[in-house]
Design a protein around this nucleic acid. Structure first.
Lengths: 201, 201
DNA sequence: GTCTATAAATTGATAGAC
DNA sequence: GTCTATCAATTTATAGAC
């Protein structure tokens, strides 16, 4: 079997868009073929089944969704600098890949048993975060807080606007996409300062 | 045409579960019939098509998702009491209907053009919120903040744990459902105080 | 009203020509 | 490698008996 690299890449790109937009159940092989500018038969020649193609796409999506970002909590900067850095890097990733959070959330909700393992395989380690927060509490730099609630707060603030883009746009921005983009841009600073104000003594 | 009320209610209940669990594209009429303890033919006798059934279910879901809750911002309690009350009521709704946020988010992401209008028809009015925040800023009760960012922060903190339950459970709670339930219970107070600390002068 | 049987439509996948 | 044509499986929807 021989493959044309250009064609195989066109397919992956098309599949990415189709799956992210419609989810596994809503995606159509015909639509992927159309987007790639080929026909279904050729699509199956390159990727044997819808499932095989989906596995490739979603595994790639997971590595983007769970970046090696907890490492900033290893550095010995003070807790506020660390949080600013974390939020900044974290939101930046989703600005670059805005449809990943909704895609992952949908698929994992529809099929938790088959997909949760991918959350671990990417090796997100929350221990460093927890420890750094506990240390900051001990040293009275921040208020006494449940580190897990705090982590959940941070992730909520960073991820939600991407997971629920149409809802946010429609509900608080009069359906204006321009306003949404502006809001997101300003968000890195907003979120970091909001968190820091909430926890500092 | 004559209908048995008990049967029609059994169907609606079954359809609710099936649609919420699998989404429109993943739901199967056969599965709904099975859950309701009837067969497909009878299901179609009561509800002409999958689409008709889905419309009923999702419209009901929207009215739960967007409750008449902004009214608390009309009351003349101080801003902190109001926020506490809002968060408390808001989270309570999703504790009672834990699968609604993920369901609505998924469907609206998959089909924004056909569904966003339902966000408005339920009449969530953010004006009262914005005004109350602006007043509190004027009177120097809270820091100078963009009211829309603040509203987004509040909604993010309340909704995200329900939209992304399996992710939260797996990523920060070692996959323990008990820990998740405990976390959610403690969350009403946590979120309210987090927000207040973030904005108070 | 409720059922069994079957039609009709959709969609993933394959055969075979070029 | 890429195509047209077709199959096979799944799933929504209907016909008709009781």
């Amino acid at each position: 079997m021989k493959y044309n690299k250009d064609t195989s890449e066109k397919i992956l790109k098309a599949a990415n868009i189709e799956f992210e937009e419609k989810g596994y159940n809503g995606a159509r092989m015909q639509a992927i073929a159309d987007r790639a500018g080929i026909n279904k038969a050729l699509l199956h020649y390159y990727y044997k089944s819808k499932d095989v193609l989906f596995q490739l796409i979603i595994k790639e999506a997971f590595t983007i969704f769970i970046p090696r970002i907890m490492d900033v909590f290893k550095e010995d900067s003070d807790i506020f600098t660390t949080i600013r850095k974390f939020v900044d890097n974290y939101i930046d990733i989703y600005i670059k890949h805005p449809r990943i959070p909704a895609f992952i959330t949908q698929e994992i909700n529809n099929n938790p048993d088959r997909l949760v393992y991918l959350l671990h395989s990417k090796g997100l380690n929350t221990d460093m975060f927890i420890k750094k927060i506990e240390k900051a509490i001990d040293e009275e730099q921040i208020k006494n807080t449940d580190p897990k609630q705090l982590l959940l707060n941070i992730i909520s603030l960073c991820l939600f606007p991407f997971i629920a883009r149409p809802i946010v746009t429609e509900l608080i921005l009069d359906g204006s996409k321009e306003k949404y983009n502006k809001l997101i841009k300003e968000r890195k600073k907003e979120v970091a300062e909001f968190i820091i104000n909430a926890i500092k003594k």
